[in-house]
Amino acid sequence: MPAQRADARRNHARLLAVAEEEIAAHGADASLEQIARVAGVGSATVRRHFPNRRALLDAVFRGRIEALCAHARDLGSTADARTALLEWLRAVTEYGASTRGLAVALLRDTGASADAEHGNTCANELAAAGEPLVERAAEAGAVAPGVTAEDLVTLVTGITLATEHHPDPVAEADRMLGLTMAGVLPQG
Rank of each mutant, 00 (worst) to 15 (best):
S77Q: 15
G111N: 03
D109R: 05
F50K: 10
R136L: 04
C122S: 15
H12W: 11
D115M: 07
P132L: 05
P51A: 14
A6F: 07
A6G: 00
G63T: 14
D29A: 14
A72I: 02
H165K: 06
D151W: 07
H71T: 13
N52G: 03
R73W: 05
D115K: 11
R47L: 12
V134E: 01
D29L: 10
R5K: 12
L179A: 02
T154S: 09
H12N: 07
V170F: 11
L102D: 11
E66Y: 04
A173V: 04
E20I: 00
E117R: 15
V46H: 08
E21D: 15
C122W: 04
A128E: 12
A72V: 03
G146S: 03
L86T: 10
L75F: 06
M176T: 12
V38G: 01
L161E: 13
Y95K: 00
V38D: 10
A91K: 08
G158M: 06
F61A: 06
E164C: 02
S31G: 07
G27R: 05
V134W: 08
C122P: 14
E94D: 12
N52V: 12
G101P: 10
T154F: 05
L155I: 09
E22M: 15
L15V: 13
A103W: 10
E135K: 05
H12S: 06
P169M: 03
A149S: 15
H118V: 02
G178E: 09
N124T: 15
A44M: 09
T121D: 08
G42H: 13
V134D: 02
D7M: 04
G101K: 07
N124I: 05
D115F: 08
S43K: 12
E131Q: 15
R14S: 09
V41C: 09
L85V: 08
A36T: 08
R5W: 03
V184T: 11
I65P: 02
A162G: 08
G76S: 10
L179C: 00
R62L: 07
T163Q: 04
L185T: 13
A142E: 04
G119E: 06
R5C: 00
R100Y: 05
A59W: 12
G178H: 11
T78C: 12
T148S: 14
S98A: 15
L177T: 09
P169Q: 05
A6L: 10
A6I: 06
P169K: 03
V46A: 13
S113I: 12
L57Q: 13
A123C: 06
R90A: 14
A142I: 04
D74K: 11
H12F: 13
A44N: 10
R54A: 15
A59N: 10
R48V: 13
D174R: 15
R48I: 13
P169S: 04
T154Q: 05
T148I: 02
H118G: 00
A105W: 05
G141K: 03
A171W: 01
R64P: 02
V38P: 01
A19D: 04
L15E: 11
N124F: 08
T180M: 10
A59K: 09
D80N: 15
R175I: 00
M181G: 00
D7H: 14
Q4F: 13
G42R: 10
D151Q: 01
A17G: 12
D115I: 07
N11D: 15
A36E: 08
T160M: 05
Y95T: 08
Q34D: 13
E164D: 08
H165N: 07
V156L: 11
L106D: 05
V18W: 11
A162D: 13
E66N: 13
Q4V: 03
I65K: 10
A59F: 12
